[in-house]
Amino acid sequence: MKAFDQLYQKHYPTVFRVAVKMLGDSDEAADVVQEVFLTLFQTMEKGMVVEYPLSWLYRTTLNKCIDKQKYNGRFQKLETAPEGQVEFQSIEKQETRIRVQRALGKLKPVERALAVMYSESLSYKEMAEATGIRFSSVGKTLSRTLKKLEAELKNKKYELY
């Protein structure tokens, strides 16, 4: 399917990044992304039309990540930096990454999804579609989520040393 191949090549990196931010583990993220694209493939194979593929991909990825975290039973993976990448990063960057991962792990799944989508520069409309939050409430929820994240980051800064 040519249409599917184009979508896969175009959106795989974005979807993968979202899954890594949600799960904090690149191996698990790769599994989730494969599942997401497999679902898309089967949907398109049946002849069903996916009107807004990127929105569909965001929504499906976020839901699958939340399910995965529930299945794993509480975000242990967020506590560690991805293996194999540590030695190539500067200490400072590595610390920042751990802090942000831990702080994201403290948020509720929907709040984490909002923060991740905000970092991807999605519009409020897209965030509302992907998370199921009312469009009119996105700004308020996002503002509070970012403040919560900031507070967590400040706490983690002290915890780290």
């Binding site: 993968f16 931010k21 690149s26 990454r97 942000v100 994201l104 905000y118 970092s119 900031e150």
Partner: peptide, 10 residues
């Protein structure tokens, strides 16, 4: 800066 920090995770 919040956006940038979250982006740095991946």
């Amino acid at each position: 800066s919040m956006k940038r920090m979250i982006r740095e995770v991946a």
